[in-house]
Design a protein around this nucleic acid. Structure first.
Lengths: 355, 355
DNA sequence: CGACAAATTGCAAACGTTTGCAAAGAAAAT
DNA sequence: ATTTTCTTTGCAAACGTTTGCAATTTGTCG
């Protein structure tokens, strides 16, 4: 019966009628334009509030030719039954949500299968979003490159790769690896095992840091002390269990995520190996969980809030025609119970002093 | 110079021109209408794909008078500096994301301060979303009631409260509490401590289940064996540390979240108390993490995927004018290392037999 | 008192779709 | 050959905003 498709939601024309002005005036008043008389403006704003009016965003976008929404895509590897992959991504997601809302943007969350990665172009093409933040780049470097070169504003959380033409934000993975390893060396450890799959760009960089630290201290990488543990929880557990079943010839672990470190801790504990006395463990990400478990976890912190800001800025910047950039954020080591610095005798300090 | 505000994105008129048909035909073809000749349809669909065209969703919504987006709001308590409160919510969020996308809806993620909870009405009022899923109801029961009675389609994850006029989905908290407690009793435990803030509706129900189980086994609640531990990680840690500093007169813990249980485990371990030998611990939620830590955590599982489906169904149902309902999902106990069933001698079985 | 500027308002044309209706053919029935 | 039916297409009017422009009112100055 009713003439309009959309249900009886109040809209500008209603307000205009009640206030006895035209729709234009209502529009301007609500937009805070100076073109409208102060008094009328107040009256209209008041009225709108009392009617709980909020303007149809679709129509606004249509008219203005732009949206205030940013799409955030989370990877979903086909093999992975976990709803959301890594707690770290979640933490980042949370920060992103806050950063976006505090700057007046809406957040459209999408999980995409790695295979459908190309489809996300539609998010922008359809005007749903003005740009895209991609969390986790190992969904096909080339796909992101293609997207970016086609003019889709994207910013990616990941590692800086050579030949990237897309905007990329990441932490200083190399430094992170270095800090962690140096700390373990300072703890007097000699056989530091690296846990992580170096096929992933970020892990590869952390590995370089690991190697650098070893070399800087007169050591070198022992191939027997590296294990390609995947990030995904269950697979990681399997791989670690398998690893520990075959070797216990290490006195420290450097894990590429806190989740991995925690799982390793659990498996070591089950074998009666004590952390940190027998084995020191350093994780990565500094999840809030890291300070909740036993033993609390020494970890490499990534500046999440800064990352979120940088990603948002990145999307907007690219959208304005800015060229792709790399933003590398600092990392720092947070020391907790899972590692134990030796008493001053053999610490980094004495390394400075000539023996 | 260009006449149109929106940048040079391809739109229907472009396709129409190239294909030599009218916009209407393009629209119909892409919508799969039978009104258009099979051959022309194919040609147009092909063309659209090759141009990577996707229709402007804003315009579609405007014209159709409805959107295909569902807003999901996550609580953000003002005091809480954690980006996203509880890992459980995250897991649910992930399931929601999958449920929504697999049914063709977009997901608009919003974090709201508890104070701004009323503002979420605008999400629907502005046509951005067709309905709202609220995760965590203890942001003001009354606000949700008001929202719902004003006709905003919402579905809430939480506990069934008397006098709710909004659609609510929750697990059977009472049963969960019962199962956990009964299991601890079956483990031969006598002093089972309840950890959780019973001011929260869900916790209150779990407590009832706890009480019921005690009574069913000829016991009763000992007020000294309940502690109002909050959910938020840091506060929980403080409260637990404080608790354990004052009492150790318990042989089992029933914690209202896995996070709480893990933290308790960590603090107990630091005090040299062994789990499960000295103290058995049951958590709640069955996070994927529960099977990663040491000892792996016995926990009450909530059916996340079902929950997500039910929430989505709920929003749609309410939007179609359906009356508010309560959906209570089953729970189950997952036994792991943190509890240890006694050998048959003193188990539940013998409780049946007359002494 | 007339002319001109400034302030405030309204008109109407977009924005990119969908869809009721009419039109134009083509095929079928008479 | 004429009418009827069916298939396929296009026209044009929405959907709810924003905004350039013109129109009106009011104020100021000579």
């Amino acid at each position: 019966m009713s003439k309009n498709l959309t249900s009886n939601k109040t809209q500008m024309v209603d307000i205009a009628r009640i206030a006895g002005v035209s729709v234009s005036t209502v529009s301007r008043a609500l937009a805070g334009s100076t073109l409208v008389n102060d008094e009328t403006r107040k009256r209209i704003v008041e009225l709108a509030k009392s009617l709980r009016f909020s303007a149809n965003v679709g129509a606004q976008n249509l008219r203005r030719g732009q949206s205030q929404t940013i799409a955030v895509v989370l990877p979903k590897s086909t093999a992975d039954q976990q709803p959301v992959s890594d707690p770290f991504f979640i933490a980042l997601l949370g920060e992103l949500a806050d950063a976006l809302t505090s700057r007046g943007y809406d957040m459209l969350l999408t999980r995409v299968d790695e295979a459908q990665i190309d489809d996300i172009e539609g998010l922008v093409g359809s005007g749903r979003a003005l740009g895209i933040v991609v969390i986790g780049q190992w969904l096909h470097h080339y796909a992101l490159t293609a997207l970016s070169s086609r003019g889709i504003p994207i910013a990616v959380w990941g590692a800086a790769l050579p030949g990237s033409n897309y905007f990329i934000v990441g932490s200083d993975n190399r430094l992170g690896g270095q800090l962690a390893t140096q700390h373990l060396i300072d703890c007097g450890r000699k056989k530091i095992m690296f846990l992580g799959d170096t096929r992933l760009p970020e892990v590869a960089l952390r590995f370089e840091g690991y190697r650098d630290a070893l070399i800087a201290n007169g050591g070198m990488v022992n191939p027997g002390l590296t294990a390609a543990i995947p990030f995904e929880a269950k697979a990681a557990r399997r791989a670690l269990a398998d690893l520990f079943a075959h070797t216990s010839d290490f006195d420290a672990l450097f894990a590429c995520s806190d989740l991995m470190a925690m799982t390793a801790n659990a498996l070591l504990a089950a074998r009666g190996i004590r952390v940190p006395q027998d084995v020191c463990v350093v994780g990565y990400d500094d999840l809030s969980l890291a300070s909740q478990v036993h033993p609390t976890l020494t970890s490499v912190r990534q500046p999440l809030a800064d990352a979120a800001q940088a990603l948002l800025d990145g999307v907007l910047y690219v959208r304005e025609g800015g060229a792709a950039k790399m933003v590398i954020l600092p990392t720092g080591l947070v020391e907790r119970e899972s590692t134990l610095r030796r008493s001053a005798t053999k610490s980094a300090k004495s390394a400075q002093t000539k023996k």
